[in-house]
Amino acid sequence: MTLAAATATTAHPTLTTVAAESHGFLSPTGVEVAFLLVGLVTFGAALVTVTTKQLVHAALWLVVALGGLAVEYLLLTAEFIAWVQVLIYVGSVVVLLLFGLMLTRAPIGRSPDADSGNRWAALVVAVAAAAALVWVVADAFRTTWIDLDGPAAGSTEATGASLFQNWVLPFEALSVLLLAALVGAIVLSRKAKAESSSPPLNSRAATGSSPSAPNSRNRPIRRNGRSEATRSAAGTEPTARGTASTTKETGPTEASNPVEATNPTEQEGAR
């Protein structure tokens, strides 16, 4: 919406664009029409995202909304930003979102329990945020026009130049942050090896140095062993409950083993 509102203004370059002189507000060019239509689609998809009662559908509509946004960037000549938008948001964030959804709860059909009671508060916040953003953006960039004839202002070269000439410090700070996160992830996944003091159950002594040696496998095996123990101790306890209790007691360390974690949700999800 923000962008759609901004279109009307950005479509009137005062500088050199011939299009702006020959076309008035009421006779838009093809690009403007496309921009508006894509904006409508994006807006519609965003609306469906927050109103649909099916969780996974919401995530998929979010893909449409984010993709529409990328097309808008393209139409605004910001090619680099557009592809990064697709790469980061559609390619990774939504996949992560879907991954989380499927891991926890992804029933086919409606999930009425996911409805929040404070939807009106959410609506107020959303409208307020949108209004604030539209106002701030329109106010800040009211006098900034895109020169469609010169070198594309949003091209990779222009973006890179401005990023590394004017915004080096924030960029570097951000990249250090991301690098720290990355190294942290590696350290965490390596730590599992150090923690498991007992030798892997099924490892051969000679191949211990292999980088892909399945060390994190220890824990699932021990867990299975324990579940076997509880099951046999309980004797007549049905299998399903045995697994469920095991899953519960090892809850926090579950992240490495999606299979076991899915089972309960699976059963209700796939009816």
Binding site: L87, G91, I108
Partner: peptide
Amino acid sequence: DAGVFFVLAVMGVGVLGSLMAGW
């Protein structure tokens, strides 16, 4: 213009198909 990004971004989208199919 940003070919490398375009290519990698769009390839990543293809995986969505598998995710949708799986769910």
